[in-house]
Nucleic acid binder design. Structure first.
Lengths: 212, 212
DNA sequence: TTGGGCACTTAATGTAGGTTAAGAAATATT
DNA sequence: AATATTTCTTAACCTACATTAAGTGCCCAA
């Protein structure tokens, strides 16, 4: 009897933990489309959560990307490394954001991006295989991901135009306004890399801005 | 009898012209999804073709964007103008490409982009209203547009990283390889603006490259 | 036919941001 | 607590690209 109870509480703990872990992603989906409880269950059956420690590399350049990640908690980034061994941040992802190497994921060719964990994090893993299955099983998800990608395209276009027309200082100000929570968490060199300047210049620029 | 024949030939002419005008966009769709003949007809009923002359502005910054354009023939571009009255090209669109101000189209807020006709062109116009209807009437189109947008996001991300890590010369070389047909058609200052340099610097750079 | 714009070139000078290097401060590792 | 490693700062010098300005060739409109 006692062992039964033990098993039972373990079951409930796991059950509730799953729900706790998954509620954020379901909320995220619910912002754009409505899933039935059965569809939610099906969706949940295709994903898994994973706890990852800071500095873990989830995706390496040169490899074919198999997974997208949704961040439950913590902080990740994607970046490239060019010939001179200089890193350039493509994107950050904190709570409630998705991150992946879309080029590699879609083309199933080796990618150029690294995906790195910046802070101990909990991520939801969605494999390409499962995502493709889900598109067929729950066609509404086409809409969900279409909307996500539309939003990220718009943000990307704006960033591109900003890089062409604004100074580093202006880009930094915009970044601060747009992602105030990220600023707190990020080491300065990561911000510099996202803005598109060297850490040395960023430091100088920051000092200059403080004087004003 | 004669007038009947006349009407008949007029009908056929219109019929075939419609088909001629629309076959490119249907082919474009067929690359990613399969539509039934009825769905194709429905789709065609929601769009119209329009002949536009060079220098026409199809979309003005400050206005809410209502339409996406698919290019049957000719050449368009989208661009912003910053405070200093400097233009920056976001994208070109020639035969078989889509162009719009996605930010404004999605948010229905005033946009920052201009869309201008560079060469006399024929475009297919798809209004936001019709597009939204189509998503409901032919859910497969969610997939089609998702794929289109995915591809453009990937291209944008690459361009962003290139702007951060490559020199103007390298960006130009990449542009030439990627869009060889565009190079022929575009005035040099448009290329310069896309690459992200002034026309003066571009000219100097070109001279330097020819010497090698 | 002329002339007024527009695209392109060349050249002098200016500057935002890069590079190198060395030290200080903060974090991580033992 | 001590050491190692990474992050940040400062400063001197360098360069890719911008700015300004003046000039050339070309199209096309009156």
């Amino acid at each position: 009897m006692r062992s039964f109870l033990l098993r039972k509480t373990a079951f409930f703990r796991a059950y509730f933990r799953t729900f706790e872990n998954m509620s954020l992603i379901l909320q995220n989906i619910a912002k754009h489309i409505v899933l039935t409880p059965e569809e939610e269950t099906l969706f949940l059956s295709k994903i898994e959560t994973r706890t990852v420690k800071a500095k873990t590399i989830l995706q390496n350049a040169g490899q074919v990307c198999q997974d997208s990640y949704f961040v439950n908690s913590g902080l990740l980034r994607s970046f490239t490394i060019n010939d001179n061994i200089v890193e350039h941040v493509l994107s950050f992802a904190c709570e409630g954001w998705w991150i992946s190497d879309m080029y590699s994921l879609l083309s199933q060719k080796p990618g150029n991006l690294f995906i790195e964990v910046l802070e101990d994090s909990e991520v939801v893993v969605l494999s390409k295989t499962h995502q493709d299955q889900l598109y067929l099983e729950i066609p509404k998800l086409e809409r969900f991901f279409r909307i996500l990608i539309e939003n990220s395209l718009v943000a990307n276009q704006e960033r591109l135009m900003d890089n062409l027309s604004l100074t580093a200082e202006e880009r930094f100000e915009k970044f601060c306004k747009k992602y105030p929570t990220l600023i707190q968490k990020l080491p300065q060199k990561q911000i510099a890399s996202y803005i598109g300047v060297t850490p040395e210049f960023f430091s100088k620029m920051k000092a200059r801005m403080l004087k004003k």
